[in-house]
Amino acid sequence: MRCAHKDHAFGVPKHIGAVHNVASVPVGQPEQAPMRHHNNALRDYRLAFALTLSEYRSATDTTVRELSETCEIPEQTMRSYEKGTHHPDLPRIVTLAPALNARPAALLLAVADRIHRANGLEPTSSILRAVLLHGGLSLDQVAAFDA
């Protein structure tokens, strides 16, 4: 059976590495546009968080197991954060940050900066923008929120 969203020559989902925007949503389906936009923004956020978490953890010379024990977060959950399949809620970020020698706001800003740079934008210093991105808003939605 063929899977419509996979490139079977490589086994990689076609959407990996693709740039997503509202214009890619079919015109006949306006009710799905906000949800698809939200899902793409969350996926991009999870990947940015995963890279940032991995960098911070490596800088502290800590293993995933050690970090999960220190923070009292199940190791499988921590691994899902580093794989980008899930991202922690704000209370978990408050728990994670000290173990990574960071402030929670600095961790959120590092993720937001990574997202901005990946989209060719100047990094942000606004913690509000960082929290809005964490909540699943796209860059376009955050800009509209600021307007």
Results as ranks from 00 to 15, higher is better:
residue 28 G to D: 12
residue 40 N to K: 04
residue 4 A to V: 13
residue 21 N to V: 01
residue 73 I to E: 07
residue 121 L to Y: 09
residue 128 L to R: 00
residue 39 N to S: 10
residue 111 V to W: 01
residue 85 T to Q: 04
residue 10 F to V: 14
residue 98 P to Y: 06
residue 117 R to N: 02
residue 133 L to Y: 00
residue 90 L to Y: 12
residue 98 P to Q: 11
residue 43 R to V: 02
residue 78 M to G: 05
residue 144 A to S: 12
residue 111 V to L: 07
residue 49 F to N: 03
residue 121 L to S: 12
residue 5 H to R: 12
residue 54 S to I: 06
residue 70 T to S: 09
residue 93 I to V: 15
residue 113 D to C: 13
residue 34 P to M: 10
residue 107 L to Q: 03
residue 58 S to K: 14
residue 23 A to F: 08
residue 40 N to F: 05
residue 138 S to F: 02
residue 70 T to H: 06
residue 63 T to V: 07
residue 36 R to H: 06
residue 79 R to K: 13
residue 56 Y to H: 13
residue 101 N to R: 15
residue 47 L to P: 00
residue 29 Q to K: 08
residue 54 S to M: 05
residue 104 P to F: 01
residue 80 S to C: 10
residue 55 E to N: 10
residue 96 L to I: 09
residue 123 P to R: 11
residue 70 T to C: 05
residue 47 L to Q: 12
residue 22 V to Y: 06
residue 73 I to R: 08
residue 50 A to P: 03
residue 43 R to I: 04
residue 18 A to K: 09
residue 22 V to M: 07
residue 132 L to K: 00
residue 15 H to E: 14
residue 93 I to D: 03
residue 28 G to Q: 11
residue 30 P to T: 05
residue 74 P to G: 10
residue 62 T to K: 15
residue 58 S to V: 02
residue 146 D to H: 08
residue 41 A to C: 05
residue 69 E to A: 14
residue 110 A to D: 11
residue 138 S to Q: 02
residue 63 T to H: 08
residue 138 S to C: 05
residue 120 G to A: 02
residue 21 N to R: 13
residue 108 L to K: 00
residue 21 N to D: 15
residue 32 Q to E: 10
residue 46 R to Q: 12
residue 15 H to K: 06
residue 97 A to K: 07
residue 87 H to C: 12
residue 23 A to I: 06
residue 118 A to F: 01
residue 129 R to H: 08
residue 41 A to L: 07
residue 69 E to G: 11
residue 87 H to S: 15
residue 57 R to A: 04
residue 20 H to D: 09
residue 36 R to I: 13
residue 89 D to N: 13
residue 53 L to P: 08
